[in-house]
Design a protein around this nucleic acid. Structure first.
Length: 552
RNA sequence: UGGGCUAUGGCCAAGUGGUUAAGGCAUCGGACUUUGACUCCGACAUCGAUGGUUCGAAUCCAUCUAGCCCAGCCA
């Protein structure tokens, strides 16, 4: 597939800033709150922030926005680092907003001294009641006119733990009638005695996002602060805080559209519910689009990069079809994955004219178009397994390119075989297919006296390795009501386990994704034991095969 | 309803007054094929609506419509 770097408006902004001399190079950051696991939606922010910095000679930081101790945990900071590193987006500095708590406090004090912030004694309910609503202006807090001296004392007392949780807040003094709700004297510090994952019990006051975030960016010298669209109307408050706290560096907030994937569970809190309820097997369940779930499923990070870059960085917001993502997974794996034979639903084939009870060994490339991937030994012998759906007793029509009685097909990388009779059980289910092979037709021999009806794959019965294979379907029922709660949309058959075989001489690398020839891409799951492999289906192969009858 | 934002083919998305309206995914034809895969050829839009400005508009103006976000001491 043709792959080109998408043009987008943020690239234009950065180019202009460099040309005008405003910045020598961009400094970007990815600022997650460590309160859950990262998912495919976050990949856009991570990859784009990283790529933009890299591309224009700047650098990219990872900063944990850990200003709310009750929701955050070191478990998440570690998992996020692992996921981002796996994506290959290397950060220059690993930073924590909590490291700036002292600076933030000082800057808030600057606001107090300028008369731009005041300590408010209103309760949370009272603040809500006086904020007004979308079309009604709010009312000034009765504490808005406190003296600067009193505010300084009170704010210091807040920090020193003189008041109970929630008793007071520090608020910015802006405009209670502003049509932008964010400008109506937003709270910038709250009192909350909670154990912070890094600062422990050092603080009992914590800054709010609107105040903390711009300062974090400014402190780090971030030039272009990318965030998603819902923060667009926070930009005035962002700029207000940077300006009035006298920060020397002025970052610019730029908003882009979030990446939304249709019919997928996204949003850290939604995924957390499924995890907590045991409806999925943890944050790395392969049916989830968490980065760790995708990794476990076997999706290569390169595929995620291709997908993200193909989408670009738009300001509009639509629902992307997960199939488009899978296409990029196939795209990358198609050129890089080793191919091997595997049979998921085996039926036995007996080669009646095979002269020996010991299998012979043949050689086959791992990838026809990538010889550097090498070759492997495959076995052929008297007893084989093929895929049940590759055989039908009577060839139904000319388009049938698989096997049938009296039909000759090529067994890939081996010989032509012709089926003569079937053995069925009492229920009429085929147990064995009896066939003969033609020694002259060996793969690579150049034999071309006859054309086979088609090519199917097989494994040799005695050398094949039994494996467990997990087949995934969408976690949510397709086209279920997007407004319904996720719990009600769960697809009961989203995971199926089958037992099949892979060819005998292959030794997978850890986490390796293979192409099971003619079936799809399958990756080794960490549940695998030595000699007892477990494979996850990453994606199926595309197929233009359209059966015009029931093959049962 | 106050404020902010978005609307280009089934999906994603370029385009910022003069182009046959990029590209990817999907779809439909066809070629090739030791994977019904890959690859390769070919087909596939008048730009949310209406009215205006202009020699000329997806691009400018006006009005309208639809969708998203904002009333946490969350981020």
């Amino acid at each position: 597939m043709i792959f080109m770097e998408n043009k987008h408006f943020i690239r234009t902004i950065i180019e202009e800033d460099i040309k005008s001399g405003k910045h020598a190079y961009p400094v970007t950051r990815f600022p997650p709150e460590p309160n859950g696991f990262l998912h495919l939606g976050h990949a856009r922010a991570i990859i784009m922030n990283h790529a933009l910095a890299e591309e224009y000679g700047g650098y990219f930081n990872l900063r944990f926005d850990d200003t709310n101790p009750v929701k955050e945990d070191t478990l998440f900071v570690e998992a996020m680092q692992a996921d981002i590193a796996w994506l290959g987006c290397h950060w220059k500095h690993l930073l924590f907003a909590s490291d700036y708590f002292e600076t933030m406090y000082q800057r808030a004090m600057v606001l107090v001294e300028k008369g731009l912030a005041y300590v408010c004694d209103l309760t949370a309910e009272e603040v809500r009641a006086t904020r007004g609503d979308l079309r009604t202006p709010g009312q000034n807090s009765p504490y808005r006119t406190r003296s600067i001296a009193e505010n300084k004392t009170l704010f210091k007392n807040m920090r020193d733990g003189h008041y109970p949780d929630g008793a007071r807040t520090l608020r910015a003094k802006i405009d209670m009638a502003n049509p932008n709700m964010n400008m109506r004297d937003p709270v910038i510090y709250r009192i909350q005695r909670a154990h912070h994952h890094r600062t422990g019990d050092d603080w009992c006051i914590y800054p709010m996002y609107d105040f903390a975030h711009p300062l974090e960016d400014a402190i780090e010298g971030i030039t272009h602060s990318l965030c998603s669209l819902e923060f667009e109307d926070h930009r005035p408050i962002y700029d207000w805080f940077v300006k009035h706290t006298d920060m020397p560096d002025v970052p610019r907030q730029i908003e882009f559209g979030k990446l939304m994937i249709a019919d997928q569970v996204t949003g850290k809190r939604h995924i957390k519910k499924l995890v907590d309820a045991g409806l999925v097997d943890g944050w790395d369940d392969p049916r989830l689009i968490t980065l760790s779930g995708l990794r476990r499923r076997g999706v290569p990070p390169q595929a995620i990069h291709r997908f993200i870059h193909a989408l670009g960085l738009p300001k509009s917001q639509g629902d992307t079809d997960i199939q488009m993502f899978y296409e990029y997974v196939r795209d990358y794996l198609g050129e890089s994955a080793r191919r091997i034979h595997a049979v998921l639903d085996p039926v036995k084939v007996v080669i009646t004219n095979y002269p020996s009870d010991t299998p012979e060994t043949l050689e086959a490339p791992f990838h026809r178009d990538a010889p550097e991937l090498g070759t492997r030994k495959i076995h052929f012998g008297k007893e084989l397994y093929i895929e049940r759906e590759d055989f039908i007793e009577a060839k139904p029509n000319k388009k049938w390119k698989r096997w049938a009685l009296d039909v000759e097909v090529r067994l890939m990388h081996a010989y032509f075989v012709k089926a003569h009779q079937v053995v069925k059980d009492a229920d009429g289910v085929i147990q064995e297919i009896h066939a003969t092979y033609d020694k002259d037709t060996q793969s690579g021999s150049g034999f071309d006296a006859r054309k086979p009806n088609g090519t199917i794959h097989f494994v040799e019965a005695h050398t094949a390795q039994p494996v467990e294979i997990r087949l995934f379907e969408p976690l949510l029922k397709p086209s279920s009501d997007p407004k319904a709660p996720y719990e009600a949309r769960l697809n009961p058959d989203s995971r199926r386990t089958v037992h099949g075989f892979i060819e005998g001489a292959v030794i997978p690398h850890p986490h390796e994704a293979f192409q099971f020839t003619r079936i799809g891409y399958f990756a080794l799951d960490p549940d695998s034991q030595k000699e007892a492999y477990v494979f996850n289906r990453v994606v199926e192969l595309k197929s233009s095969f359209k059966p015009t009858f029931q093959n049962k």
